[in-house]
């Protein structure tokens, strides 16, 4: 299983939606880290996302763009992405963010970001 530790591999303060919001934004996370990792996965392999290591929390702008964005840019269908991702955290408060990420991914329609452009 491959792993992304958000706090260590990306930023201790992930914030913002678009690349122009800064290097810690959801779009940067998705394009520079998440999608390349997903490309490396074997067909039955999963990707573990460590949510709470050195991170205090997440805003929905970041989460929507980072995770639902994978579906919206047309990279992967929401059902397939949900099967590929697992989430881990020690702080139980982060269960809220896992639920939110899964909700945002489920609600996203494939390729909708391209259509809206």
């Amino acid at each position: 299983m491959q792993r992304i530790n958000v706090g260590k591999d990306f930023s201790g303060h992930p914030i913002g939606r678009y690349r122009e919001d800064g290097p810690e934004s959801g779009e940067v996370f998705r394009e520079d880290l998440l999608i390349p990792k997903l490309k490396e996965l074997e067909s039955n392999e999963q990707l573990e996302i460590v949510l709470d290591d050195e991170v205090e929390g997440y805003g929905s702008s970041f989460l929507v763009e980072a995770f639902a964005g994978v579906v919206k840019v047309g990279f992967m269908h929401s059902d397939d992405l949900l099967k590929k991702l697992t989430f881990s955290y020690r702080d139980e408060d982060f269960a809220f963010f896992e639920t939110k990420i899964k909700q945002y991914i489920s609600e996203a329609s494939l390729g909708s970001a391209k259509e809206s452009k």
Binding site: I15, G16, R17, D21, D52, E56, G57, Y58, G59, S60, S61, F62, D91, D93, F94, F96, F97
Partner: peptide, 12 residues
Amino acid sequence: PLLHGGLDEAIT
């Protein structure tokens, strides 16, 4: 963490 999420959104 939930307040942090709210503050992140306020700043965004």
